[in-house]
Design a protein around this nucleic acid. Sequence first.
DNA 1: ATCCAGGATGTAT
DNA 2: ATACATCATGGA
Length: 304
Amino acid sequence: METGEIPVESLNGGIDLHSTLASGQSFLWQREAGGLFDAPNDADWYSTTIPRSEADRERPEVVRVRHRSGAVEWEASFDAHEAVKSRLRLEDDVPEILQSILEETEDALLQTAFDTHSGLRIVNDPAFPCLISFICSAQMRVARIHQMQQALSKQFGTSVEFDGREYHAFPTPTQLTEASEDELRDLKLGYRAPYVKRTAHQVVDEDVHPDDFRGVAYEDARDGIQVFTGVGDKVADCVLLYSLDYLEAVPLDTWIQTAIEEHYPECARSSYSETSRALRAAFGGDTAGYAQTYVFHHLRTLDE
DNA sequence: ATCCAGGATGTAT
DNA sequence: ATACATCATGGA
């Protein structure tokens, strides 16, 4: 086992692992003790797997992290320093980003969301698992989306032992093509089962991968990634924001639509694309996704 | 029971 | 382009 720590407390605004990993951005982490959505304990470890390479079925790597005295501590099956920095976007200067957003829009909701959830960061998930996660997200609650991804991993992913425990990698595209629609429905994917199966086949048979859109102009990438079955504007934005490095993406889900009605009615337009442009501008442009993610998490947790 | 959850698809207009 | 029904599932 390799270990390390990455200082984050005063650097780039620190991190709240629970807010970051259980706020409906990523569905690929779990808590070592207890359910991901149970009340958090300060010293909890959060674990996930990392594909070793593009090749299918190679033994995946395992990493776990916790927040300790001003640092992210990690333990892993490999030297995970760069992977942890990348997966948690530890190089984002979050205070600078949030302050920059507030300079453009002096807004009580944003201010409250930023203050209430200090340490919330945007994640950087691997693209295919992120794509499947958000295809499954349609009309589903956060906890159940997470449950579905864990079920997919246990059923179809490669299992690997680390530090005496068994972990399950997210299935590769090929592994998912070998799942039948009925098997996917047995995992409670419902009508999303054929979307997942068809998307996996697109990756394998048509040689198109969500990573292919990395670097394409934002709106072109959002349109382009909708070639995958089950991906519309909103899911496309989630994949761009939480996996492909597009911090300007502002997924317009039901919570954000309500927020527009109640807080930003001047941003409402007749199409997703136009509303997205207006809200993106209101949320400070290039890093608008940070504002979106804070508002989403804030509104969704108001009753707690 | 009825409504809703990080919506998308197929079809008709 | 836009409007509508339809698609599973479980919790409130």
